[in-house]
Design a protein around this nucleic acid. Sequence first.
DNA 1: ATAGTTTTTCAACTTTCGTTGAAAAGGGGA
DNA 2: TCCCCTTTTCAACGAAAGTTGAAAAACTAT
Lengths: 201, 201
Amino acid sequence: MADKRGSRPHPRGRRPAGENTRAALLDAARAEFTERGFDGATVRAIAQRAGVDAAMVNHWFGGKDGLFVAAMEIPVNPEEIVHRILDGDPQQAAERLLRTFLSVWDTNGGGALTALARSVASHEQAAQMMREFLSGMVFGPVVSAVAPDQLELRAALCGTQVLGLGMIRYVIRLEPLASAEHNTVVAAIAPNLQRYLTGVL
Amino acid sequence: MADKRGSRPHPRGRRPAGENTRAALLDAARAEFTERGFDGATVRAIAQRAGVDAAMVNHWFGGKDGLFVAAMEIPVNPEEIVHRILDGDPQQAAERLLRTFLSVWDTNGGGALTALARSVASHEQAAQMMREFLSGMVFGPVVSAVAPDQLELRAALCGTQVLGLGMIRYVIRLEPLASAEHNTVVAAIAPNLQRYLTGVL
DNA sequence: ATAGTTTTTCAACTTTCGTTGAAAAGGGGA
DNA sequence: TCCCCTTTTCAACGAAAGTTGAAAAACTAT
């Protein structure tokens, strides 16, 4: 009944291998940052969720900031996403773009974009990453491929619509959009987004 | 040169009257919450900005939470705003709505909505206030007056566009939207917003 | 096998923040 | 004038969080 190690979940030093602490930490960090934002998430909670000690964050990532940057490195390949969006009729690019975001977000509990949105609060670095992600990684390439003019303005406009949708649906959780079917959302928003991409401004 | 009270900025007890601590605290709180969000703002910084002791926050508002709620009580009258938006051609309601938000925000450094947006992070109360403000105070009444059907969906859709604009322009500060003229923004976005209000979904 | 390196936990430190209680000072009514 | 209430600062407390250093355990190479 009274095993000597019974009360201590983990013995001291290195663990039997196989369990990748770094990856576990990244997963836990993504979840916590998404749920609570940069300030709300604590190193201790992330470590506990990953089942390791909080000191591991410093060992592997140098600190909370490093972990945040590493965790927000998007797990999905932006080029592949962009490629899929551009594949087909340019007049339906908005619909494909919207469906892509919705499915990434819904399988992800809000996704990295939501984590960033929640973190932009007091972290200038998050705003920086957001800018780069929005204009550089996703909307920039798409707009360049399908839009006739005013590329930067169109990219920013797409940002307002997509980010606004993310905020309302996942952060504020305003009904009926928060629980609406993908088809409903797409039917309502895709035409507007399409105008930002290829319509006359 | 060496006044006995020279090193102490304020003597102890009550001050000569005339200076309204409560109001100063509210102003400072609005500024700090807007710039840094609920978590980023500290009671001490707010008090220093107001030129009073941090304990005054507890004395007047019961704590940081009470101060936040009090500070977010919107200084602009929503009914008046709604009335102005509804006054005129319903087909141009979106333009008036957009211009109203832009001017409130731009004279306000982002405004209460931005403060709330920055605070939604780890404060469920902020999300609650946001929901009520969006659907109850502004978009709800406007939509009820001009929209033909699906009132709640239309209100939420307007929320995505307006909140997204606020996030991109004031929080993320993505160019060229961040520094664009009001006319440019209105020309680009009003048609889309008008579709959410009165168009066919 | 043994020495050295890497990984891991533990305990403690430091800082920051919200909050509290007591004391001081001005104002107002009896 | 004297007493009481309100307002204000001050000092300190307690909790929480990011970080650090040392010791222990497992792996690796010689």
